[in-house]
Amino acid sequence: MKKIGFSGTLDPITNGHMWVIGEARSIADEVVVFLSENSTKQPKFSAEERRAIVLESCRERGWDDVQVQIVKSDYTARVARKHGAEYLIRGIRTTADFDYENLIQQTNVEVIGGAKTIFVMPPRDLGSVSSSFVKALEGPVGWNWTMKKFVPGPAYRAWILSWLRKEWDGLWQRCAADAARQAHIDQWFELLTGVAAYGGANRHYHNLDHLVHGLAEIRAWNANVQPARADADAVRAAFWFHDAVYEHEAGSTVSNEEASAQLWLGSGLAGDAAMADTVALLIRATDHFQGASISHPLKDTMLSADLAILGQDDEVYRSYARGIRAEYAHVEEDHYRSQRGQVLAYLRGKAETGSLFGDAYFAEQYSEQAIANMNGELAWLQG
């Protein structure tokens, strides 16, 4: 077969869609993805953004030959036929899918003279994956790790950046937003999510995933504890900046946390001096060397949100542990096991005495699982 088309809104493209595109490549010389721009839908991403995500997702798998064509105000099957694709390929997961797709195929061929349809059935692990399913995952604590299982990397990154953007803009919506101020806010978002900070290639744990998780934890804490708006905003701002600087410089006299606090103070983002000082204090509270001497009503909340990763389910915790090891790849294995073991033993001791999570909201949810997780990693480190 010379050319075959695959159509959809693809908001976002999923691993199920990618599987269908892979099947198309195996039976045709050319594959064109026909991306629908439907005015009746309100997708998260524009058609051009979705096109870029699809192309990047294909390139990531070495599929440089896949083309993407945006369809505007026309039937996809008719556009496919115009572009020389006599067949569209569609994935069907259930008998209900077949009944629906078969009706669409009959309309495409008999009514509008469009391309015919070839049906393929995805493997069982992709059978329930749809864009609607993936969209529904967003929100609760840990949603990002769940979503990551079902979409290609470029789609995942675009989705969490969109979520982070909403969180970021919501933090500053109380501020007077003239054009210059908004541009300043935009610049700091790009900096914090870019390669110089959480988006950096060497950020294997203290990265965008960590940022999403912590902010989701703070969002849940805010919904359940209902603190004052200023308090919640201070914790959010501190979490955005607390790992903004994360380097391993031998002989450095300034800790990463202090450098991050200074970065915050120099950002000019705070609405007033009180917020600037509070956020800097909360960032410094995460510093092993100066945290113990810091006293603030929000300190326990900040530290608990940062340590909440210790109480996640086993799969997420193991991914976290691998990420930490990768960030310390410069440390020799035996030395790493020794140092990491000491840190975990200390944290486990605090968990066993009920003092790991100083905020009661986090302690109730995560203490027991944190102990089990750390016991498991300690056993591996000592094995």
Rank of each mutant, 00 (worst) to 15 (best):
S295W: 05
F150K: 06
L103A: 15
G91C: 06
L171V: 12
A176F: 01
W19D: 03
W172A: 01
V129F: 08
Y361A: 08
E333G: 07
A24K: 05
D186F: 03
R322L: 14
Y205G: 01
L378K: 09
A379D: 13
D125K: 12
Y336E: 04
A47D: 01
V31Q: 03
A237C: 10
A201Y: 01
S319H: 12
A24P: 03
A370T: 07
F98K: 10
F6S: 03
Q67A: 15
G16S: 13
S338H: 10
A201P: 05
D29F: 06
R61F: 02
V111A: 13
G139W: 09
A329C: 08
Q187F: 06
Q339L: 12
A85Y: 05
W143Q: 12
R337K: 14
N15E: 10
A360D: 10
A47F: 02
I53E: 01
A308H: 04
F45S: 03
K350W: 03
Q382L: 11
H335R: 15
L303G: 04
G199S: 13
G84R: 12
A216Q: 09
G354P: 02
Q339K: 11
A234E: 02
T9G: 15
A379R: 14
R90W: 00
G139A: 14
I21F: 01
G271M: 01
F241W: 04
I104C: 08
T95Q: 14
G114P: 04
R50N: 01
A270F: 05
I218F: 04
A176M: 05
A280P: 05
